[in-house]
Design a protein around this nucleic acid. Structure first.
Length: 642
DNA sequence: GAGCACTGC
């Protein structure tokens, strides 16, 4: 057992029973707040740590963790829950005897920055007592690390394990119900040494300032137009402070910026002093960084952003938030096996998170472009869980690798649609990853589970071994794992298309990627070369990094790293071994390039980002060699460039 | 003529 920090009968925190949910709440025990700081030698940072809202709950948190298998902590941004709770646990002895306090974070960047922060607060070297592990980096020392931050990992089921879930937006009640009724927690009840199965729930206030919410009186028909009007009226009537606008995607954002420029120009009085900046993930790094530059005196910054500013990055200086009420969300249709991005209404949890972004520096205002009636009566309290709108192949393979065989009977916090589950099992079976009994096959299934990629890509890599083209396939896999190797196409569409043509191979995008990678290496991994060819240099560096990681994984799995030296047929065979389920046939007499999938006769089209989109559509025979002929000129393109 | 945001041994 860990070192006792609380002795029954001495300084017991006050317990409040929540009437509705029956979950246990603890009021802050203020008397204990001042007692423990001197025991730990972080004097310089100590007082700073004590000012965090979570500090008041230190004793309560430690008590809950000791007496409950699961503790759920709801705390807003800035409460200090992420940086402080692991330290409280360490101080209370939870990392003694070789144990490790593991703290998972949903983002790689968050893992790195939180780990550095905690190491700094504890005055230790990062990678020793405090470390972190993410996909491409392991900054820990197994002999010394007591607090370890990591991206979504896996923890074993053990009676002495304590699970702490902390979130700003979590729906504590449903999460609590899950852990209470979960089959995983069946076992002896109420033994003295056994922690309570009922999860404890604790709310910690944030450090944010009050945000005044404004709703529109009538529903708006055009949220881009409404956004622009709202921004201009804030600028006209409200005191200094930056504005953060939430729209759905690049199209919306570009349209809003243009409209804003036009309307601001029309009324010159208010046009001065506005710095309007877009923000979305595919924006080049240099342009993204502009949003972090301090606003010059007398100016007002307007950042028009996607959801990226809701959770992934934080802008200081924002006092006004304009919330369109929409975001783009991915949906998966298991019947057609197609993933779609659709503009959908956000949840109340999202709306609150967005509003909170206005209260980081001082009291702020949030302008919601929907009615209060809509917020109260129609907006759903939480969004549809990701599990219910995703492909499940990766998830199923991970569960199988954990030894959970009865996937259909698994108790999910949110059950995915049965069709999606069946589809995933079907695909994994066809890939040879699962056998007739839906168990992982040996070696393919176990090997595929070791590769952190979509199983279709994993299978492609595994197949490349016998085909003698693992070096090429690993390059392709690395490029498929990043969003895009090209620069964002808006405004330079023609130039980008021309650049793509310099590398285009008639075999399609995979082989084109090999041409690109070869060119990048030949340029000496030059950033100028990337710039000249409309390629994203940051993305190419990432490709090199992922490629190295995949090579190490492949070696561990016994794959021989070998180049096929231009035998592109081998590469195509490997790609097919992974992606045959997507095979499609061009419809006879199709005038618009419609294909139908072999498996389900699902209508599909070549994506506009593909090198095979529209440009090279006509196959011609030139002296026995099949060439692709350009639709708009007489040029032809050969196959893979030797 | 299209690209919300993320992750994984």
């Amino acid at each position: 057992m860990p070192q006792q920090f609380w002795k029954p009968g001495t300084d017991k925190p006050r317990i409040l029973e929540d009437e509705e949910g029956g979950v246990v709440f603890f009021a802050p025990s203020l008397s204990s707040a001042s007692s423990s700081s001197s025991r730990f030698g972080y004097a310089s940072i100590g007082s700073q740590r004590q000012r965090l809202p979570v500090y008041k709950y230190r004793t309560a948190i430690l008590y809950l963790v000791e007496t409950h298998a699961t503790t759920i902590i709801v705390g807003e941004t800035g409460s200090g829950k992420t940086t402080q709770i692991p330290q409280y646990l360490k101080e209370a002895g939870w990392a003694d005897g070789g144990r490790v306090i593991a703290c998972t974070q949903p983002r790689r960047l968050a893992v790195q920055s939180v780990a550095s922060r905690v190491a700094e607060e504890m005055d230790v070297k990062l990678g020793e007592e405090v470390g972190y592990t993410i996909r491409f980096e392991d900054v820990t020392n197994p002999a010394a690390t007591m607090i370890k931050f990591l991206t979504d990992g896996i923890q074993r089921r053990r009676p002495e394990l304590r699970l702490i879930i902390s979130s700003a937006t979590i729906e504590a009640k449903s999460m609590s119900d899950f852990f209470q009724t979960s089959k995983k927690h069946r076992g002896p009840e109420d033994h003295e040494l056994v922690p309570r199965k009922v999860p404890a729930v604790l709310s910690v206030e944030g450090r944010g300032f009050n945000v005044q919410i404004h709703y529109v009186v009538e529903p708006v028909s055009d949220y881009v137009q409404a956004t622009v009007s709202t921004v201009l009226s804030i600028h006209d009537q409200e005191p200094a402070g930056d504005i953060l606008v939430f729209l759905t995607g690049q199209d919306d954002i570009d349209a809003a910026i243009q409209l804003l420029a036009e309307e601001a120009h029309a009324s010159r009085k208010i046009s001065s002093g506005l710095i309007v900046l877009p923000l979305y993930s595919s924006l080049p790094r240099a342009e993204q960084d502009l949003v972090f530059s301090p606003t010059p005196r007398g100016k007002r910054k307007v950042v028009i952003s996607t959801n990226i500013a809701e959770t992934s990055l934080t802008l200081e200086g924002v006092v006004y938030v304009v919330d369109s009420g929409f975001s783009k969300q991915q949906f998966y249709n298991p019947i057609s096996d197609i993933e779609n991005l659709v503009v959908a209404p956000i949840s109340k949890a999202s709306a609150r998170q967005r509003a909170g972004r206005a209260g980081r520096v001082r009291p702020g205002k949030c302008y919601r472009l929907y009615t209060e009636e809509y917020f109260v009566n129609e907006m759903s309290s939480v969004g549809i869980p990701e599990m219910q709108r995703s492909k499940l192949v990766s998830c199923v393979i991970q569960l199988k690798a954990l030894g959970i065989d009865n996937i259909l009977g698994f108790d999910w916090p949110a059950s995915p649609p049965p069709e999606a589950m069946i589809r995933a099992l079907e695909v994994l079976y066809s890939l040879g990853v699962l056998d007739d009994d839906a168990k992982l096959t040996s070696p393919v299934g176990f090997q595929a589970a070791e590769i952190p990629l979509d199983p279709m890509i994993s299978k492609m890599i595994l197949s490349s071994n016998q085909l003698g083209c693992s070096e090429e396939i690993i390059t392709i896999a690395a490029i498929l794992s990043i969003q895009s190797i090209w620069v964002s196409g808006k405004g330079v569409q023609k130039e980008l298309d021309e650049a793509k043509l310099r590398f285009a191979a008639a075999e399609g995008d995979h082989v084109t990627f090999l041409n690109v990678y070869k060119g990048f290496l030949q340029s000496g991994k030059s950033s100028q070369w990337c710039h000249k060819n409309y390629m994203n240099y940051q993305a190419m560096k990432k490709v090199i990094e992922i490629r190295e990681q995949l090579r190490r994984t492949a070696l561990r799995l016994g794959i021989v790293l070998r180049s096929c030296e231009g035998d592109i047929l081998a590469v195509r065979k490997a790609v097919t071994a992974g992606f045959f389920a997507n095979a499609s046939r061009l419809e006879a007499f199709s005038h618009n390039g419609m294909y139908k999938t072999v498996r389900g006769s699902q209508e599909v089209y070549i994506h506009p980002s593909s090198v095979l989109f529209s440009v090279y559509i006509n196959m011609v025979d030139v002296q026995g060699v099949t060439m692709w002929k350009c639709k708009c000129c007489e040029s032809t393109k050969g196959f893979y460039k030797q």
